[in-house]
Write a protein that binds this DNA or RNA. Structure first.
Length: 501
RNA sequence: GCCCCUAUCGUCUAGAGGCCUAGGACGCCACCCUUUCAAGGUGGAGAUCACGGGUUCGAAUCCCGUUGGGGGCACCA
């Protein structure tokens, strides 16, 4: 057995794929890649009441999308890779029962007949006495024969693991040596419910042992519980994995990031048009740094630099504004073909939702790319920036049609004067002019000069008339994309609106 | 309540005793570019390195304490 590195991410399908889970998965993958190891995905679905197939699918799809698919373990609803499974806890019941029996036989676990009502009472009594919650150990001393007899007679009993006294040492790769007195662990630990189903602290250890996990890399919220795991590993007589506890991702108020206070579902970020490259880049930099001033990095670059040495110890606030900046960086780094492909579903969705009047063709989106790639922080931003091209009717806002310095009459006159020049200067279905100076622009500038108008005001009035928006891609490109007929119709409509106002 | 973790600009961070009158990035402000909006460029404001004691010739960096923040303490994961 060489020193092969085996790490895992163990999501629980009790909710949609969470940003924090994605971050932990990423760090595990990075650690595996940096050390030539194996990255395993295990599904922790022992909480049957809250686990659903939909959530599992969302998590697996999210992992796949981000490029965090398993080397080994659960890949999809019906695919598992690797020979140390099953990798879904719901399929491992027999194994848990077996190991629990082993602990019981060795005298390391015992039956507990306390009812939940009794335990609740015990807990609240201690709470009232300002004592930390802790199981009294009331059933610990019941003679094995008596316990066995009661169980055989059908009495309901959970199985508890004996927490041995003493100090447990965690040698954490991020935090160094951490000592926790077993006294503070809350007493003997239930590993099997009365119905025989296993509990988290138990399954995680059995699985990590069975799957040969060498490094447990997870959130800091698990640090306090790690001694329970260590004691269990020792009771099973297996080699301890190394532990590395990552700093938590925080809400703006510095509490653990939660759905309640932040947007946590990966699918929501994806639907908004965040790129997987940006999410990976951003997540990698939350709690870790290159140690240099490099910031915009792809996975390969991150992998090449990754090590636990540079992992931060304190929690990191999730800064959405920074994510958007990184997203913009990545949008601008995509090739035209890539950007087109990424934008496609957003236009399709917008057409389906009726946010634009008709579907956009690849040709049309391709023509737009150079005009929008520097103007969209999110893929979804492209829609509102270009919707005027795909709308049949524009509803003009008179306020928008009149530049601040102008009267309505001036705007009206300007549109009327510009109309023939535009009719003359734009063809039907023109391609946007990228580099060449636009002769139409020159004519309109001359017109503005003759009339004593600022060219910018004229352009603003035209922009509002043609697009119905105050912020758009460059005006002349926009009008050419729109085509002569549509532009003239909209100018006429705008003039009518101004006259009526 | 008990236990554990933690502490550099608003935010993400560089910094592993002298290179720090603390560097970068996001955000913010100004200017430039400019038909709008962006993008880009330049510059600026912004941190008594939480506080108090030590150790040392010398501390953001090491030690102790205090305070603040966070996490954990289930027949949840």
């Amino acid at each position: 057995m060489s020193g092969e590195v085996r790490v895992r991410i163990a999501p629980s399908p009790t909710g949609p794929f969470h940003i924090g889970t994605a971050r932990t998965a990423l760090f595990n993958l990075l650690y595996a890649r940096a050390n030539g190891g194996t990255y395993i995905v295990r599904v922790e679905d022992t909480d049957t009441a809250r686990s659903t197939a939909e959530h599992e699918a969302d998590i697996l799809e999210g992992l796949r999308w981000l490029g965090l698919e398993a080397d080994e373990g659960v890949v999809s609803a019906n695919e598992e890779r690797g020979g140390r499974g099953p990798y879904r806890q719901s399929a491992r019941s027999a194994r848990y029962a077996e190991v629990a029996a082993q602990l019981y036989t060795a005298g390391l676990a015992y039956y507990c007949f306390c009812t939940s009502a009794e335990l609740d009472a015990e807990r609240s009594a201690r709470e009232k006495a300002k004592l930390p919650p802790r199981y009294s150990g009331r059933c610990a001393g019941i003679k094995a024969e008596d316990a066995a007899r009661r169980v055989a007679a059908g009495e309901s009993a959970a199985l508890r693991f004996r927490i041995r006294p003493g100090v447990v040492v965690i040698d954490d790769l991020v935090r160094g040596r951490v000592e926790i007195d077993a006294e503070a662990l809350g007493g003997d630990l239930v590993i099997l419910r009365a119905d025989g189903s296993p509990l988290y602290h138990f399954t995680v250890v059995v699985d990590d042992a069975d799957m040969g996990i060498t490094h447990v890399i997870r959130g800091e919220d698990h640090l306090s519980n790690t001694p329970k795991h260590i004691l269990l590993f020792q009771a099973l007589g297996v080699t301890l994995p190394k532990f590395a506890h990552l700093p938590l991702i925080l809400n703006p108020d510095r509490t653990k990031m939660s759905k309640r206070k932040s947007q946590t579902a990966i699918s929501d970020y994806r639907a908004e048009g965040f790129l997987k490259e940006a999410i990976i880049n951003f997540l990698a930099l939350l709690g870790w740094s290159t140690g240099s001033e490099d910031e915009v990095l792809n996975v390969e670059e991150i992998q090449a630099r990754f090590s636990l040495e540079h992992v931060q110890k304190a929690g990191a606030v999730f800064d959405r504004t920074r994510l958007e900046w990184i997203n913009g960086q990545w949008i601008r780094r995509l090739t035209h073909e890539e950007l087109l492909a990424r934008l496609r579903p957003f236009y399709d969705q917008a057409a389906a939702d009726g946010r634009i009047g008709r579907p956009a063709t690849d040709r049309e989106i391709a023509a737009l790319l150079p005009l929008i790639r520097e103007r969209i922080p999110l893929l979804s931003s492209a829609i509102e920036l270009t919707d005027f091209l795909f709308l049949d009717v524009l509803r003009h806002d008179p306020g928008l049609l009149v530049p601040k310095r102008w009267e309505a009459a001036t705007a009206c006159a300007a549109l009327e004067a510009a109309r023939p020049l535009i009719a003359d200067g734009i063809g039907e279905g023109d391609a946007p002019l990228l580099d060449a100076p636009d002769p139409l622009e020159a004519k309109l500038r001359t017109l503005a000069e003759e009339q004593g108008w600022k060219a910018g005001d004229l352009f603003m009035a035209l922009r509002a008339a043609a697009t119905g928006r105050a912020a758009t891609p460059p005006l002349f490109d926009s009008m050419r994309l729109l085509g002569r007929a549509a532009v003239l119709t909209r100018i006429d409509q705008a003039i009518a609106v101004l006259r009526a106002a």
